[in-house]
Simulated assay, not measured.
Amino acid sequence: MLDKIDFDVPEATQYLNGEYKTILQLVTVLSHGKQAKRLTDKAINHQECVQNLRKAVYDFKIKIEASERGSAKYKMLLHQGVNYLYRYGAMIVLANFLLEIKDQNVSLRESDFPKWLEQHREISSVLSRKTLD
């Protein structure tokens, strides 16, 4: 389906760049949000021969929009698409965490990602959205 996307459509470009409302809000609550997203996107681009996570989310978005709202297929696709978007967001959050501990000169062994995440509940709040807007 991705090969049929009109890449000149601004909305398609926006989503293929990972500019979902959830991701944009996530970037604003992170201390290194823009840089973390940029690094995550670079990592995704390097692995697109396996799968481009941003394109996969967009593919689900297109399939969801083509299905009947409220149907079993719609619900299944929405669930899968939201899970993919969550993975994308989680990668950005991890990149942000790594940038923070680097700034603080804390070694990875001395750091505690689950504890850090627990101290930043706003991140979990943003990632818990169930939408692909």
Rank of each mutant, 00 (worst) to 15 (best):
E122S: 13
I64H: 01
N52H: 11
S67Y: 00
S107Y: 03
L98G: 11
D41H: 13
L117Q: 08
I64C: 03
H120R: 14
K42L: 10
F113P: 01
D59W: 14
F97D: 08
R109K: 14
R129D: 13
Y84Q: 11
E122P: 10
L53S: 08
I62C: 03
K130Y: 07
Y74L: 00
L39P: 00
L78P: 02
Q80P: 06
Q119R: 13
P114T: 06
L85Q: 02
L77D: 00
L98D: 08
I101P: 04
H120V: 11
Q119P: 08
K61E: 06
S111R: 03
S111T: 03
L78E: 02
G81F: 03
S125G: 05
L94G: 08
S67D: 04
E65Y: 07
D59L: 15
A66D: 07
G70R: 04
I92R: 13
Y88V: 01
W116T: 11
V106L: 15
S124A: 14
L77E: 01
L117H: 05
Q51F: 09
H120F: 09
K115S: 12
A66E: 08
E118Q: 14
Q104N: 13
S107E: 08
Y58E: 03
K115I: 07
R54V: 08
I62Q: 04
A66W: 02
Q51R: 12
T131M: 02
K55R: 13
K75C: 12
Y58D: 00
N105Y: 13
R129Q: 14
